[in-house]
């Protein structure tokens, strides 16, 4: 939702980044204010996940230009864990499995670590168990998932739910959901979207990367951006997603080129 007295959360200006010497992001601009929901759409390989992981602080990507400010602070001054503690959360497109690390132990440790850094109380194992079970209800997840290793053997959809469970626990300022809808069945999509909607409020913001307009019926975006070749080339309202659904991406690129040529 767009609010009158919203605060500036994220400001990305001219972001350029390479991986293994190949330029992936080529001058990306994005502004996100509190309370807003943004959708980023765009063809495969256009750099959506790259952008998401750069915000989370993945070391495989080298930032070669531009700036990213998060709540008035240079995001690149923060280590990945400091970003998480400051309220940046990335729900991964492909959450990895961590055999041997118990899900409940992992969830409790991350929760308590983040709480401590935010100057809040830790929960002991029993209190945490109540807390996490409550959050799992929101996502209609069975408590059995607590007993297993992190994501190990989870189905694609179960992994995505486990990501949103972590989001629900960690209460981020800026949640980046990278294709959280991919791999979810129709019911799961509704449940997960419902969960996300309940977490959204006027102090935080959500950036969702998706290929499907369907998700946007459940989580209604204030802005829809089209990303191509490492840049955001068009921004519109939620109706842009419908137009993309019927017309594809080509026309956006054509339009963008014409506009850039005209500007020169």
């Amino acid at each position: 939702m767009i609010y009158q007295d919203s605060r500036l959360l994220l400001e990305v200006r001219g972001l350029c980044a390479t991986v293994n010497g190949t330029e992936i992001l080529k001058g990306l601009d994005l502004t996100v204010r509190s309370g807003e929901v943004h959708a980023i759409m765009g063809p495969n390989g256009s750099g959506k996940s790259t952008f998401s992981k750069i915000l989370a602080g993945h070391s495989a990507y080298e930032v070669t230009g531009g700036t990213v400010m998060f709540e008035g602070q240079n995001l690149f001054d923060l280590a990945p864990e400091e970003r998480a503690r400051a309220g940046v959360f990335l729900a991964f497109q492909y959450p990895i499995e961590i055999p041997g690390v118990g899900n409940s132990q992992f969830l409790r440790l991350t929760y308590n670590t983040v709480q401590t850094h935010r100057g809040k109380e830790e929960l002991d194992p029993l209190e945490f168990d109540d807390f996490v079970r409550e959050k799992m209800k929101l996502l209609e997840m069975s408590p059995d998932f607590l007993e297993r290793s992190v994501n190990e053997g989870f189905s694609g959809g179960e992994k995505k739910r486990n990501e949103i469970l972590q989001m629900a626990m960690l209460d981020p300022r800026l949640a980046i959901l990278d294709e959280t809808d991919s791999g979810l069945d129709i019911d799961a999509l509704r449940i997960v979207a419902n969960g996300v909607n309940q977490l959204a409020n006027k102090d935080n913001a959500i950036v969702m990367v998706t290929h499907y307009q369907r998700l946007l019926n459940y989580i209604v975006p204030d802005y829809v951006h089209v990303m191509e070749a490492g840049r955001i080339i068009k921004t519109g309202g939620k109706e842009l997603a419908f137009e993309l659904e019927t017309r594809g991406y080509d026309w956006v690129g054509v339009e963008h080129k014409a506009a850039t040529r005209a500007a020169v």
Binding site: A79, E81, A84, F89, F92, G100, V101, L109
Partner: peptide, 30 residues
């Protein structure tokens, strides 16, 4: 240790050291 695993744990607020310890511990705990 797998760097992607370390990053995943860091992205959830654990320091790199805590992340590495957790993964090492899990390896031995088996």
């Amino acid at each position: 240790l797998d760097n992607e695993e370390v990053f995943y744990l860091q992205s959830r607020g654990l320091s790199e050291t805590a992340a590495r310890n957790m993964l090492t511990y899990a390896f031995g705990a088996e």
